[in-house]
Design a binder for these strands. Structure first.
Length: 319
DNA sequence: CATTCGTCCTGATAGC
DNA sequence: TGCTATCAGGACGAAT
């Protein structure tokens, strides 16, 4: 279940292996993994073969590789990239660097062969058990505000068209809290729904939403149009905190040959304070000498974990 | 227009 | 043992 920190771990790992290399061949082993590429597998492969990878860029949970269709020419400025290979990991997607000798993974969906590079694996593989993720090609278009479209080694004021509709994420230096708060207040919905809405703030999934709400001592159903500025700032800072902590913990294996979403990064269950802790004590309450048991509720066809004491459900006219 | 809901998927696990 | 039911959830298009 990769959320922003896991995708960023992949980005940082991947960029060292693929930047500057040319895609020499593409195998689409399961067309369902490119279903967002409307023109089909032949078009997908045909456009990728011969393209050079310029960078790896991320906004929220979207990751893309800007491409150049010409070889690098010494002494000449590279033209601005116009197309990118987009990746979304969905629920179970992985991007793995592998040597050709390594047997295909059980759920290998797409294989990219790369131009040889000393000491580097030849293949970039997309492995995805549940097929919620996928790869596809997308145009790169200018950002509205002229700032970088996402986090990159060489930031450009371009955004993958298919990611242009999502908001900046809380770790983006150009994220605007004022804009976020203004749009949050204008909504007629609950706080967790809003946090999960990638068009309002990107990168937050079910796990970090619960963690951020717990840290901020706010209930998931709190009506967004009643939030004070200080409360909105609290939950946003909490989201930054939990994601930064996860990133720091997941960043220890960047030098591994194996860029593995679920293995090399992933969640650190011992550090989770809310998600998956139904029936266990609330750590914050316990530290204060209060007995409180974390509970799980059905929410949006998934789960919401809260402490009934320090995250009380809002009641009409009183919060 | 804004918001919410149903759908896509597979494998681990629980229950009979 | 072997079957079926349930659950997990990101993002998008349909429905409200």
């Amino acid at each position: 279940m990769p959320e922003l920190p896991e995708v960023e771990v992949v980005r940082r790992g991947l960029v060292n292996w693929v930047r500057g290399r040319t895609i020499t061949a593409v195998d689409v082993l399961d067309p369902r993994s490119i279903r967002r590429h409307a023109l089909g597998a032949e078009d997908f492969a045909g456009n990728l073969e011969g393209a050079r990878v310029l960078d790896v860029v991320r906004r929220g949970k979207f990751l893309w590789l800007p491409l150049a269709d010409t070889p690098a020419e010494p002494g000449r400025a590279a033209p601005a990239p116009a197309v990118a290979l987009m990746a979304h990991l969905g629920m179970s997607g992985q991007l793995l660097m592998q040597d050709a000798a390594v047997a295909d993974e059980k759920h290998l969906k797409i294989r990219l062969r790369l131009s040889p590079a000393a000491g580097m694996p030849e293949q970039l593989r997309f492995v995805d058990q549940r097929i919620f993720g996928g790869l596809f090609l997308t145009a790169l278009i200018p950002t509205l505000d002229g700032h970088a479209g996402g986090l990159a080694e060489t930031p450009l004021p371009l955004i993958a068209e298919e990611a242009a509709h999502i908001a900046r994420d809380p770790l983006d230096p150009h994220f605007s809290f004022d804009l976020f708060f203004q749009r949050l207040r204008a909504r007629k919905t609950g706080l967790k729904r809003a946090l999960l809405d990638q068009a309002l703030v990107s990168g937050i999934g079910n796990i970090y939403a619960d963690e951020a709400l717990w840290l901020a001592k706010l209930h998931y159903a709190r009506p967004t149009d009643t939030l004070r500025r200080s409360e909105a700032l609290r939950v946003l800072d909490a989201a930054r905190q939990v994601m930064t902590d996860a990133l720091a913990a997941g960043g220890t294996s960047f030098d591994s040959l194996y860029v593995n979403v679920n293995g090399a990064s992933g969640y650190f269950e011992r550090s989770l304070n809310a998600y998956g802790r139904a029936g266990q004590e609330c750590r914050r309450c316990a530290a204060a000498g209060i007995v409180s048991v974390m509970k799980r509720e059905q929410f949006m066809n998934r789960s919401a974990y809260t402490c009934p004491v320090c995250q009380p459900r809002p009641r009409n006219g009183r919060w």
